[in-house]
Design a protein around this nucleic acid. Structure first.
Lengths: 202, 202, 202, 202
DNA sequence: AATGAATGAGAGTTCATTCAT
DNA sequence: AATGAATGAACTCTCATTCAT
């Protein structure tokens, strides 16, 4: 029993190893460098071994994405302790953008890259992702209900807020604002959020 | 002189041919179908010939990007005939988003793809791109000056507006909102712009 | 003794399990699906275990062949109850061809495939196969002795009859007569046998 | 002009080289050894080069098959000079079987192997193949018309004759008659043809 | 007796790119 | 100016098989 448990754990550890090797390559050398061979080299196993733990390359990328969604979700947990919906909304934005800037490659994989979305939209992952989105939506709804945001359609407002945040972080991540040095990204985002919320929230 | 001029012109024409072949492939069959060989087939020359006009694949993609920026810039020209800055701002948004939805692959190449940005950030291209951006910025500035937008920093406001638009179109283009069918994209964008400007503009 | 006997029996049972799993895969999904891993999955053991009972894949295929020869042999048993040699000959042909059409993959393995023949030509298997062949030969001999077939060499006649049957079924099995749809195979075979025996047998 | 002709010829020669390399491997080491890489090694080119002349592996095998059908067809040409249909029939059988025994691997590829038939049934190849078959059929028909074969259905008789020949040669080629040494194959075939025609033909 | 873990060897295929002509 | 010919370097993935436990 202790034995089978250990085996189980070792299996999981190997999956973790593969995943973090993939992530490392990913971050260090970009998406195109994430090949099964490179992953195998990185963990010092043979390519065939990788296939013992993940059925194909897409599964690895999906699993990687999933860890991203989980991490983001985890960061969102603190929101439940914030009573005022407007504060909660501001915190949501900050958490989202901080996550993006601190995990650029991961954010890229989650929200920008074309690659592994071709695979099945793994139900679990989407559940996690959707949960975060619904959280945002309910926060916006609370703001509307509390008279802090005036809009006939909370869904649209939610989408707009997400789009704003995604827009700014993805401009930075994909380097479409070369005039702004990386060390200013965080500051600019704050200002943008400030400006936007100042106009939207009463 | 007349001779070398003709040579020069022929060289340019060939570059145009290659570019428009690439563009056709790009739009017709997507990014992955744009291989040197396919381009060569399309213009009925050999792959090696392509290299006489562009040093490598990235250069072609860069040049392609440039045409995109020029087209976007061209569409923006009508703005000069719109007197009221708020109307101009609204029109800017519409032109930008329409361009994105009507030229998804091109927009992707211009603002999302990683591919050719690695190559030299061709000065010309950025000039064109920057020009459009400055146009937006001056429109926002006019709105601020006219008291239609209240913000201490027109630059931030401009960036926020761009980020919003880029966010929403890139979410659609990279299919991160699968719950919204493609035929709704345009409508949703209108609503988002409406909501945002309603809050920002007086 | 009782112990080692039980062990022996268990070993045999396991070999049977492996074999029938292989056969199932073989018939259900074709030759290419018969991999050690699939067999192991089918019996819910590990691939390594399979190797405890068969030295390699070829041995399994050989054993599989053997079961085919045994089944064919079993079907031939009814022949002993047919008194008239000509009737017996006709029945032989029908049994042979029916077996082939009803067990295409197995027939293929037995008489067409190259695969496991490279391995040792297991003496047992050939005994079984030869027995069927000798049965046919003695039937032909009886026909000759009874004056129903005129030939100086019953062996040649036997071979010719076998070749005829093998020829037609293997043309169908390996799809070399695409103009004849599968549902006609049986009818065509009847006609061919009829024509041939009409000429050979008095 | 002479230039483009030479190029054309060289292209054909290269295709020939690939084909004969494939054939050599095929005969020397069996079907499984015919890999793109091995072919490339054999002709001392890179694997990628092979793809300049054949679009994929199947095309090579198809082309190989085609040469087989053409050679067989070529051998059949002498038949037109044989006036008497019975003689022609006998000659047909001999030519067919001789071809099979002299080109065992090729015959295998043409009439036994499963492999490249998956590919499109190249129209040309089948034309050539069918032509040979129709030749046989018309010979049989002539025999029937001349009263040398009595059958209500010349098509069935033709198929039976083909099946007989295919059966015997494929038994030898796939080594299902190990009791008969290879050097007897030809003799046995003669005897079988003799026996069969003796019974069928008047 | 059974197996989890691992792998070597190899398959077909694609592409950007080069270079002698 | 144009190109035909060629290739190196990859890619993903599969399988029979082995061996320490």
């Amino acid at each position: 029993m202790g034995l089978s448990e250990r085996k189980e754990r070792e299996k999981l550890e190997m999956r973790e190893m593969i995943l973090s090797a993939a992530k490392r390559l990913f971050i260090r050398e970009g998406f195109d460098s994430v090949t099964i061979r490179r992953i195998a080299d990185e963990i010092e196993y043979s390519p065939a071994t990788v296939y013992l733990y993940y059925k194909d390359k897409d599964s690895i990328l999906c699993a990687l994405q999933e860890t991203g969604f989980r991490e983001l979700s985890r960061r969102m947990e603190v929101l439940s302790s914030i009573a005022h919906p407007v504060d909660r909304l501001k915190a949501s934005g900050k958490i989202y953008c901080d996550f993006a800037l601190e995990n650029r490659e991961m954010y890229d994989l989650m929200f920008i890259m074309r690659a592994p979305m071709n695979a099945l939209p793994s139900p679990e992952e989407w559940t996690v992702g959707r949960h975060s989105y619904e959280l945002l939506q309910s926060t916006v709804q609370d703001c509307v209900d509390g008279g802090h945001i005036s809009t006939p359609d909370a869904k649209i407002a939610t989408f707009a807020l997400w789009a704003l945040m995604h827009g700014v972080v993805s401009i930075f991540i994909r380097e479409r604002a070369p005039m702004i040095p990386a060390d200013q990204h965080s500051r600019i985002i704050s200002k943008i959020m400030e400006f936007s919320l100042a106009n939207v929230v009463k």
